[in-house]
């Protein structure tokens, strides 16, 4: 259905098949970036991309290709991802494809709570979409950032509450029966080091039963606004 878009030399470069001075004209069958924009909706809860994209639950994804894993300044990565980057993992077609397929199999301790995309075509499409936001050949297009979708509209005074991290630490002991403190995520997502705003919005979404999970709805139901802020403050600071 989807016509494969040809992008110059990407796969060959990523696999290290050709050295410097490679011809930009070499083309490899890749994915459909338009279809990839749809696939990206799965990612957009945590990742922003495009002009003005900011780090959120996950790092922004502009300039991803060619970036050393776990090395984008200003984002606090899981130990595992940072270590993989230090060991030399660089994001290219091949490594991203493996990561997106089953994140934990490439980086076992990643905090990216995503089961992976089984379908090769969907991965190709997503990679073609992501590729647009890296340097040449595709410059960042003039498009709105993708992750400014507001899940729950909260009054400013709720978002502005300053949490008590010590109370948050006590309350968090309930969370840590299931969510691992070091951010490992197997079957249960990581909640470590989330930006406070994302944490607060997510918990309110559970409390308002907009998000469906019964355990989380139950946990959130008895948390006050202040307690949610306290938890957010605590999980933001975790090592």
């Amino acid at each position: 259905m989807r016509p494969a878009v040809l992008l110059a030399a990407l796969l060959a470069v990523s696999l290290g098949l050709i050295g410097p001075g490679r011809a930009a004209a070499e083309a490899v069958a890749f994915g459909d970036a338009e279809a990839g924009a749809e696939v990206f909706l799965w990612c957009s809860g945590c990742h922003e991309i495009g002009p003005d994209a900011q780090d959120s639950v996950g790092p922004h994804l502009n300039g991803l290709f060619g970036r050393r894993a776990g090395a984008h300044e200003g984002y606090d990565y899981s130990e595992s991802l940072a270590r993989m980057g230090a060991d030399g993992l660089v994001w290219d077609l091949e490594t991203l494809d493996a990561y997106i397929e089953v994140p934990q199999s490439l980086v076992s301790g990643t905090r990216m709570s995503f089961p992976g995309i089984e379908d090769q075509q969907e991965r190709n499409d997503l990679l073609a979409f992501l590729r647009r936001y890296s340097d040449s050949p595709a410059n960042i297009p003039e498009a709105p950032p993708t992750a400014l979708h507001v899940e729950v509209a909260l009054p400013e005074e709720v978002l502005a509450l300053v949490g008590d991290p010590e109370y948050g630490e006590y309350l968090a002991s309930e969370c840590l029966t299931c969510h691992q403190k070091d951010g490992s995520a197997q079957g249960i997502p990581s909640i470590t080091k989330w930006p406070e705003r994302n944490f607060v919005v997510a918990m309110h979404a559970y409390r308002q039963q907009l998000r469906p999970h019964p355990v989380m709805q139950m946990v959130a139901a008895r948390l006050s606004d202040e307690e949610i802020a306290a938890l957010a403050a605590y999980f933001k600071t975790l090592d």
Binding site: T177, C178, Q180, Q186, G187, I188, V215, M218, A221, R222
Partner: peptide
Amino acid sequence: SSFISQTGEDAALRKTTYEESLGWYAGI
């Protein structure tokens, strides 16, 4: 307050619930 899984749930939800239990074991 309390909750319980429902009879007749689809296979995908049951699989997610099982995977959650593996995460819980690692967590606890």
